[in-house]
Each structure stands twice: as structure tokens, then as C-alpha cells.
């Protein structure tokens, strides 16, 4: 039964964590993989939850671009406007933060209000 093993949707509990953090009064942003090309490490729909202090749970790239996403998320929490980020090998920034698997991903970052 489902309680005996983790949900296959690897980040299914990220949304639960996001709700818990909001309830606890933390300012929270949610990042979601909305599009992938080539060999992307995490599927479309994967989530990362971030708070204003940079704490995070979940994964949008298996570690490749999380650092950059967290930085953007902190800005989104402050500004309130959602952002659409794109990372890929053609993108110098993405290369620097290390999406070296050859894929490209688009990530939507929004504040939970």
C-alpha cells in the first residue's frame, strides 16, 4: 500500500512541504519544471520549494541548476512577480551553473501568497 513505499512521483511531497512552510509563516516560492529538451535530469512537473532564507526541498535538475534557481526564487519572493527561467548548454549562465548533461529546461518560479 502507498504508505509502505514512497510515491513514484519523486517530488510529490514537495507540495506538502510548501503548504507546511506557508502555514508556519515562512515566505515561500515554488519552482516547477515546465518544459525540457534533450536529456533533462528531472521530468516536467518536478518541483523545488524555496524559502526567503534559501532553504529548499525537492529537485528541478538533480543538482545542476538548483543554486541559480534558489537565487532567482529569493528575488521572486521579494518582488512577488513570477519568472520563467531557461537553462541550457547554449546559455552561458546555465553552463556556468552546470547543466552539463546537454539538455535544456524551462523553470517557472512563483511566490506562494
Amino acid at each position: 500500500m502507498s504508505a509502505e513505499r514512497p510515491l513514484r512521483l519523486g517530488d510529490a511531497d514537495v507540495l506538502g512541504t510548501a503548504e507546511d512552510w506557508v502555514r508556519a509563516g515562512r515566505a515561500v516560492a515554488l519552482a516547477t519544471v515546465v518544459e525540457t529538451w534533450g536529456s533533462a535530469p528531472r521530468p516536467v512537473g518536478s518541483h523545488l520549494v524555496i524559502d526567503a532564507d534559501g532553504h529548499f526541498e525537492g529537485s528541478v535538475s538533480g543538482g545542476c541548476v538548483e543554486g541559480a534557481v534558489i537565487g532567482e526564487a529569493i528575488e521572486v519572493i521579494a518582488a512577488g512577480e513570477p519568472r520563467l527561467l531557461e537553462f541550457g548548454v547554449a546559455d552561458e549562465t546555465a553552463w556556468r551553473v552546470g547543466l552539463s548533461c546537454g539538455g535544456r529546461i524551462r523553470i517557472y518560479v512563483e511566490r506562494v501568497v
Partner: peptide, 26 residues
């Protein structure tokens, strides 16, 4: 996303109900 929609989504998941969250990216 607002917290109430997030709560409703998690509620649907707990109840084993299928749900789709539609986000206007603009």
C-alpha cells in the same frame, strides 16, 4: 499560486482524487 489553491491540491492528493492545476504563465 495562492495558499488556498495549494491546500486544495494537497487535499485532492490525500483523498486520491485526480486534479489538474492550471497556471497562466503570463
Amino acid at each position: 499560486m495562492d495558499r488556498f489553491t495549494l491546500q486544495s491540491l494537497n487535499e485532492a492528493r490525500r483523498q486520491r482524487q485526480a486534479a489538474i492545476l492550471i497556471t497562466n504563465l503570463a
